[in-house]
Design a protein around this nucleic acid. Structure first.
Length: 676
DNA sequence: AGCACGCCGACT
DNA sequence: GTCGGCGTGCTC
């Protein structure tokens, strides 16, 4: 008897570029979006059902179709919208769909284990939350410009297919207030709002504001500090519609939210929105895609918008709002460039800078010295023979950490005891070179005895609660000096902080990475924004040996917008993003040659695609060796996004294999932001 | 990614 | 004569 039977097409978390098909028995046909356990090779794998197809029982098949092993869920984990987003992302980033899907699901769902009864129950559709009266906080009055901003956004968002809005608001201009006010009516109507932030641990003040303002609204936070179980529970609460505010880092963009009505991307320029390994998506770009698919508004906020976003404003794809003034009497800080060349430096600081620090402390105010380099010194060398402490596994110098008296590689984590003499010539007098936050802390402690020096970096805050401890010391508003890295750049508001010193920006001014200047400009503006946030005027000192650099001059003299405009003109001249599109193919192997050879082969295949694209390279990566692997890269550029994608599809369809390149690992990075 | 199959060097 | 090296290819 030829009875019809049923096939399911399943995405598997492996680098397969196709779905696999399995048979199911009539009584257990799973719905699309349900997980199944399937036999794979000799083993068993989890998979997600993406298609169900009735076929004639006698239909021929290329393969021996195996039956699924078990249906794992009673309810679909992802709805059609989310699956469409993931399918789009897999195509756009040229990442296998199964890997995309399972990296978007909480880790608890990547196992071939059925959920407990309790968890199954939580997957059932829940009733929409009842409308809640959100109490307007009368203590919080919007300024006239905030009010005008809010009004514009609300008018625009009422359109049937709203365009993304870029809210360009200087530090302290009150972007958060706009977010809160925009969210209020939606939450009151029982809707959900997704808020994406760069790194949750670094934006505690944003979380506190939300918690106070929306005390009665169920909220979940999705960040790296959660255990698998906690993350899964938060995901379930969002999926049920019960949690109305979902705050999280980039991966939160994949959280199911049945009544999603708004997406907010805070610090939309931030590089941490781009995933740097595996499925290399951009959180902001997927947010815009998701919002577009759902026809809901999306708001991008930043004091220093990404060049891409400013360009999208120019072309009319985004709308733009500027929030200029700081509430109250706060004025923007005065920026001053300090030429380091004529001076003898102490731990990298000029005499003028030290004097400015002293004056600040004597006025009873706080100062911050920003140096994006951990450890005591970034190099240890022998003055007699020239030997230097290199990492055995990477092509970088090791950093000397004084407190632990160890040499540490900041790229692979390798550590070793500090040698007591030169391993090459036995000279017992090894010397350090360059500045790190540890050395800066020590110098400042000696120089300003009687005033506390608080160092905040990954090394000084590794213990749980240590960061909060240090921050609360700063919040006493007593005169002190803060020393720190990137960790200090955003999210903290110190009312008595009036001086910010920024060190070591030369490498970014001289970098060959075309994004380095954009990032430097953003960082300078963000860090400068720490100064003078309350009623006191702020001062910012930039130390550099390149004070005449035209773009630095422009940034200091005219501000971020003209600086960004100039950078955009430079990008246009070279057809660099956003005027052209890039994809970076990286390869690594135990020696450099096979990686280069494979990329050479790939470059040739791409040429055979007959698409209008440029290949730059292959060349060794800027950090040629990392964790014992040699790295090379091939940059692809095109003025047509479509040509680039067609070429990459052609490459993947043909398969990439070359004899003698067996140990080469390679990957595609669409819209790369990091070229190291 | 795993995990097999498949041809060339040092062992009971 | 075999055990096993990891190069190559497949997974419905």
């Amino acid at each position: 008897m030829d009875q019809p039977s049923t096939l399911v097409h399943v995405a598997i978390p492996r680098p397969l570029h196709t779905l696999l098909s399995y048979s199911v028995t009539a009584g257990e046909i799973p719905a699309v979006g349900v997980r199944v356990a399937v036999p794979l090779g000799k083993g068993v794998s989890v998979g997600l059902v993406l298609g169900v197809e009735a076929v004639a029982a006698d239909s021929e098949s290329e393969f021996a179709i195996k039956p699924i092993q078990a249906v794992l869920d009673t309810e679909p984990l992802a709805d059609a919208h989310l699956l469409a987003l993931l399918e789009w992302a897999a195509r756009y980033y040229h990442c296998p769909l199964g890997e995309v899907i399972f990296s978007a699901l909480p880790a608890a769902l990547r196992k071939t284990k059925p959920l407990s009864k309790a968890m199954q129950r939580l997957l059932k559709p829940a009733a929409q939350p009842a409308a809640i009266a959100v109490e307007p906080d009368n203590a919080l009055q919007l300024t006239a410009s905030q009010q005008a901003c809010l009004q514009s956004i609300q008018t625009w968002n009422a359109e049937s297919t709203p365009r993304p809005v870029l809210l360009h608001g200087i530090t302290g201009s009150g972007k958060t207030e706009i977010y809160l006010r925009l969210m209020t009516p939606l939450l009151a109507a029982g809707k959900q709002v997704l808020v994406i932030v760069p790194e949750i641990g670094l934006t505690p003040q944003l979380l506190t504001r939300f918690a106070h303002f929306f005390a009665e609204i169920p909220t979940v936070c999705l960040h790296s500090g959660l255990s698998d179980g906690e993350r899964f529970k938060a995901w379930l609460r969002a999926r049920s519609g019960q949690a109305q505010i979902i705050i999280g880092t980039r991966s939160a963009i994949f959280t199911p939210a049945p009544s999603l009505a708004l997406i907010v991307i805070d610090e939309e320029h931030d590089a941490s929105l781009k995933q740097q390994d595996g499925f290399r998506y951009h959180g902001r770009d997927l947010a815009i895609k998701r919002a577009q698919m759902l026809a809901i508004p999306v708001l991008l906020g930043s004091a220093t918008p990404a060049l891409e976003s400013l360009y999208n404003v120019q072309t009319g794809r985004y709308r733009y709002l500027r929030l200029e003034q700081r509430p109250g009497s706060a004025r923007p800080p005065a920026l001053q460039v300090q030429d380091t060349r004529p001076f003898e430096l102490q731990a990298g600081l000029t005499p003028d800078t030290l004097q400015a620090l002293r004056n600040t402390l004597l006025r009873g105010e706080q100062a911050m010295v920003f140096l994006n380099r951990r450890g005591f010194a970034p190099a240890l060398y022998c003055p007699s023979c020239g030997w230097q402490a290199d990492c055995a596994h990477c092509s970088v110098k090791m950093t000397w950490h004084a407190r632990r008296n160890r040499l540490v590689c900041h790229h692979c984590g390798a550590e070793q005891a500090t040698p007591t003499e030169c391993p090459s010539c036995k000279n017992p007098q090894l010397t350090t070179q360059g500045q790190g936050t540890e050395r800066l802390e020590l110098l400042l402690q000696n120089h300003f005895s009687g005033f506390p020096v608080v160092r905040i970096d990954r090394d000084s805050t590794s213990r749980k609660g240590e960061l909060e401890e240090k921050l609360s010391a700063v919040r006493t508003n007593e005169p002190l000096i803060l020393v720190g890295t990137q960790m200090l750049a955003k999210g903290h508001d110190f009312p008595n902080l009036t001086l910010v010193v920024i060190m070591d920006i030369d490498h970014a001014l001289l970098s060959t990475d075309y994004r380095a200047l954009e990032r430097l400009g953003q960082l300078l503006v963000q860090v400068a924004g720490r100064a003078g946030r309350a009623t006191k005027a702020g001062q910012v000192i930039l130390q550099t040996s390149q004070p005449q650099h035209p773009l630095l001059q422009q940034l200091v003299g005219q501000g971020y917008t003209p600086f960004a405009k100039q950078l955009l003109e430079d990008r246009a001249r070279w057809s660099f993003p956003p005027y052209g599109y890039h994809a970076l193919i990286r390869a690594s192997s135990e020696t450099l040659e096979p990686a280069l050879r494979l990329l050479e082969f790939i470059a040739e295949r791409l040429k055979a695609s007959e698409q209008v694209i440029q290949c730059l390279g292959p060349v060794p990566a800027p950090i040629e060796k990392r964790a014992n692997r040699y790295r090379a890269q091939l940059l692809l550029g095109s003025k047509q996004r479509g040509a680039l994608h067609t070429a990459l599809d052609f490459l993947l369809a043909g398969g990439v294999k070359l004899r003698g390149c067996s140990g080469v690992r390679w990957s595609i990075d669409v819209d790369p932001v990091d070229f190291s």
